[in-house]
Amino acid sequence: MFYRDERLALFIDGSNLYAAAKALGFDIDYKLLRSEFMRRGKLLRAFYYTALLESDEYSPIRPLVDWLNYNGFNMVTKPAKEYTDSMGRRKVKGNMDIELCVDAMELAPHVDHIVLFSGDGDYRPMIESLQRNGVRVSVVSTIRSQPPMISDDLRRQADNFIELDELRDVIGRPPRPEGEDQRSEPEYETEN
C-alpha cells in the first residue's frame, strides 16, 4: 500500500502508540521506525506529539523527547494537566488531538500519504477531510490487544490499517534487563 515515489509524513500520537505497544508487550525503536518508513516512500516529516508533566523534577519521557528531537523527529509538546478524580486518585491528562489535526491539515497539500500512529476515534473526521483533499491515510494501531486499541470507526475510515503487532520484528526493540533506563511515555489517559 506504499509507493516509493510518494511523499510521506508520519503523525505519532505518543501516549496512544506507547499504550498500544505496551499492550502488545514490546517497546518501539524509533530509529528503526523512521528507517522503515523512509524505505517505504519519501519521508518528508515525522511528527511526535506528547504532553509533558512539568511539575516533576525529572520527567520519565524527557530522555525520549530529547533523543527524538536530535534524531529527525519534529517534536510537538505541551504541559500536561494534573487533577484529582472523584475517587481521590491523581490523574494526568495530556491530549494532543488538536495540535496533531492542525499540523496534518496544514501539511496535506504537500504530501501524498499520511501515516497516523493512533487508535483514537476522534481522528476519524480529520482522516475523512484529508481523504477529500486527495491524501491517502494509513493508521497504525492494534486489534490484537484486549481490548483492541483502535476505534472501529477509525479503522474503517482509513485507506489502510497497519497492525502494530505485524511491525514488531521491524520496529520493536529487544527487551531490556529490568532496571535499565526505560525511554518511554508516561501513562496518560488515552481515548479510542
Rank of each mutant, 00 (worst) to 15 (best):
M1V: 07
F2K: 08
F2I: 01
Y3H: 10
R4L: 09
R7Q: 09
L8S: 06
A9L: 08
A9Q: 07
F11Q: 03
D13E: 05
D13M: 06
G14E: 03
N16T: 04
N16W: 02
Y18W: 09
Y18G: 05
K22V: 02
A23W: 15
L24T: 11
F26H: 09
D27E: 13
D27Y: 10
D29E: 06
Y30Q: 06
K31L: 08
S35H: 10
F37D: 01
M38E: 13
G41K: 12
G41P: 04
R45A: 05
A46H: 10
Y48V: 01
A51Q: 06
A51F: 11
L52V: 15
E54L: 15
D56F: 11
S59C: 11
P60R: 15
P63A: 09
L64N: 07
V65I: 12
W67V: 00
L68P: 03
Y70L: 07
F73T: 00
M75S: 00
K78F: 04
K78A: 11
K81S: 04
E82G: 10
Y83Q: 01
T84P: 01
D85Y: 14
S86C: 04
M87P: 00
G88C: 09
R89S: 06
R89F: 08
V92D: 02
N95C: 01
C101D: 01
V102T: 07
A104P: 03
E106Q: 15
L107C: 05
H110N: 06
H113F: 15
I114A: 15
G121T: 02
G121M: 05
G121Y: 02
D122C: 02
I127A: 03
Q131H: 09
R132Q: 07
N133V: 01
N133Y: 12
G134S: 05
R136P: 01
V139W: 08
V139P: 05
V139L: 09
S141I: 05
T142D: 02
I143K: 13
I143L: 10
R144P: 00
Q146F: 12
P147I: 09
P148G: 09
M149N: 07
M149A: 07
M149T: 03
L154T: 10
R155Q: 13
R155F: 06
R155M: 13
R155A: 11
R156I: 02
R156S: 08
Q157P: 04
Q157C: 15
Q157L: 05
Q157Y: 03
A158G: 02
N160I: 00
F161E: 00
I162C: 04
I162R: 08
E163K: 11
L164M: 05
D165R: 06
G172F: 06
R173H: 15
P175S: 11
R176L: 14
R176N: 03
R176G: 01
G179D: 12
R183S: 01
S184E: 13
P186D: 06
P186V: 07
E189T: 08
T190P: 07
T190N: 08
E191D: 04
E191S: 04
